[in-house]
């Protein structure tokens, strides 16, 4: 017997899905701001700081990159109350996703900083640029251009990875889908709709990243890193 698709019951609850999508944006937005902040501090700490700081940040990076986000989430949500720190599902989700992104973005940003030769900075200073100008035009923009594909790829993975937060019933899109599924029993239809919303969000963000890239990197391009370097940068992302 062929299964008949019926989207009507799911469509009736569409507002819940859109609310879920909005919550996913909020949740991953907060995690991304915090995660990138961790990444900036981590990358600068690793390249400019003393040796022990480099080691400590390195340990954090390896711990979070080599364990699944879901386990990190469980440890924070179920484990921390055990040592007296009780968090709401959403707070735990934001912290877990931010710490995870922090580890990945530390490495991505560090790769960008390391790609700028010291001589370029000296050349900038010799040309009479102020320190601030050197930091902006010689370090940040060129470094950002090199890591832009990896960084935006990582942000996309973070947006999608936030679906894991549904495991502890944080309010976001996948959890909204699960709730609709349990009231309508239209599992396949529900998750197809959820998938379409995720795809639409991802494509919208890719378009935005592309626009930002156009605006940021209007000036003459520096020599593009080799495709091989590109591949190993892109394979640096994950959740």
């Amino acid at each position: 017997m062929a299964y008949q698709m019926n989207f009507a019951p799911v469509m009736a609850l569409a507002p819940q899905l859109f609310e879920g999508a909005f919550n996913t944006l909020i949740l991953s937005g907060q995690s991304i701001v915090a995660g990138i902040a961790i990444g900036v501090v981590g990358a600068v700490g690793r390249t400019e700081g003393p040796r022990w700081l480099d080691r400590a940040i390195g340990a954090y990076v390896e711990l979070f990159r080599n364990t699944p986000l879901l386990v990190q989430l469980f440890l924070i949500f179920f484990g921390l109350p055990y040592i007296g720190l009780r968090l709401s599902a959403n707070a735990a989700a934001i912290i877990a996703v931010a710490l995870n992104l922090g580890a990945y973005s530390t490495e991505i940003l560090r790769a960008g900083l390391q790609a700028i030769p010291r001589t370029q900075i000296e050349a900038g200073l010799a040309l009479g640029m102020s320190r601030l100008q050197v930091v902006r035009y010689v370090v940040i923009v060129p470094a950002l251009r090199i890591i832009y594909p990896a960084l935006t790829g990582q942000l996309t993975l973070t947006l999608l990875g936030s679906s894991i937060a549904s495991a502890i019933s944080a309010t976001e899109l996948t959890a909204a889908g699960a709730r609709i599924e349990s009231t309508t029993f239209r599992s396949l239809e529900t998750f197809l709709c959820v998938a379409v919303i995720y795809i639409a969000m991802t494509f919208t963000f890719r378009f935005i990243y592309w626009l930002i890239g156009l605006l940021l990197f209007r000036r003459k391009a520096p020599p593009k890193p080799s495709l091989i370097a590109d591949i190993s940068e892109i394979s640096r992302v994950g959740v």
Binding site: T156, G161, I164, G177, S187, L188, A195, I199
Partner: peptide, 23 residues
């Protein structure tokens, strides 16, 4: 492009429910 824009968890749900729905 499509699969990379979908969370793994949703793909897991789709194949979990999808397979049983096609019988």
């Amino acid at each position: 492009q499509l699969v990379q824009a979908t969370p793994l968890l949703i793909i897991v749900f789709l194949s979990f429910y999808g397979l049983s729905f096609v019988g």
